[in-house]
Design a protein around this nucleic acid. Sequence first.
DNA 1: CCTCCACCGGAACGTGAGGAGT
DNA 2: ACTCCTCACGTTCCGGTGGAGG
Length: 415
Amino acid sequence: MEKPLDKLFDKFLQGQGIFKDRDALRPTYVPNDLPYRGEQMGRIGSILGPALRGAPPSNILCYGKTGTGKTVVSRYVLEQLVNKAVESKVNAPLTAHVNCRIVGTNYRVLKTLCDAIGATMQDGSDVPFTGLPTDEIRSIFKKQLESDSKIMVVVLDEVDSLVKRDVNQGNDILYGLTRMNSELDRSRISIIGISNDLTFKDMLDPRVLSTLGEEEVIFAPYNAVELKGILQQRVEIAFHPGVIGDEGVINLVGALAAQEHGDARRALDLLRTAGELAERRGDERVLQDHVREAQKVIERDAITDTVKTLPMQSKAVLFSVYVLADKGQNDIYTGECFNVYSEIAKSLSLDTLTQRRVSDLISELDMMGLINTTVISKGRYGRTKKIKLAVSKKQIGAILADDTRLSKAARDIIG
DNA sequence: CCTCCACCGGAACGTGAGGAGT
DNA sequence: ACTCCTCACGTTCCGGTGGAGG
């Protein structure tokens, strides 16, 4: 008798599969060559260059939207810089890469920097995650840095999030870092700040800005042609030859990503998802259909993610819109929505918010793109918002049914 | 042309949780 | 351990308004 999975597994065994090196399509991958970013690499390189002679480089701010290569370029340049130093047997600069969206407090930034240079407590153990006064970890870091007498280049990725989360605290962290040089004798720190928000400068303390923004490097979005070039380069590393036979595939991926302000990360993500799709189906080549399908998958995942992480009250509001839409009602107004919401909240034993608040939640859902709203006037019958689901009813229904609390309420209300 | 509905959306304020400072 | 601040989330209050119907 034939075993049921035999054929499926055979497919994986025979043939070479789709991917040669899937990681080449991940955002963390640093290729050997970065096309279309020669100018930026050159600028950053020439600014950091003095580090090879032991002179402290200026601080740099890099601007550009997501997926324009800011992070990868900075990683690449630092890597090359260190390589060159080792090769020429000069003191290699220390480097650290801090993602400020994840590492968002003064203490944790310092902790990351300590780890990067191998600074330890007096007994030789690692600096703890928490528990020390911030001043102490600061002096541990300084002490270690002084003992090495080196240049350290710190990349602060997504610095804007530091300042956005807390303007004062963010400025304090940056001020503390930029000012550290004046407290050091033999070592120097220089900072590369990376931001995808151009208005970020406005929120900075002028003192911080003047030191941090000594040099600025702008990363323009990639256009469709450049995206295509990048894709072609990665395709050769990531896929087995012939898997992407059709040039239309790359063109399509490039075109779709170019619509998203030339986001290379998105383009690579799309290509990888398309490849995974083809792989899972046992297809030998990646076709345009896979790409279109991948686009849908990515979008669907993004929606599922936002809905799942919604606060309970917002879910209840969204659910009320869904219930009304599911009844086949085309025009949903704030008033009805609020009534249904009230019932849902009651059956969930949730506090029933005021209509004013619900109105704000509706606006939030609108901004997230889960629903569409328009303010309309019904003349004598008042002025209100007309609400429509912006995503497929089926998907919202499925996600909300997944939530145990909500699905119970659903049975109460829909019956 | 005026009225008046049913809500919009700004403003000010209340509250409890979580940090920072001391 | 204590107070003080800040912030997110909500509430209360209220002036504002596009247009159907009189």
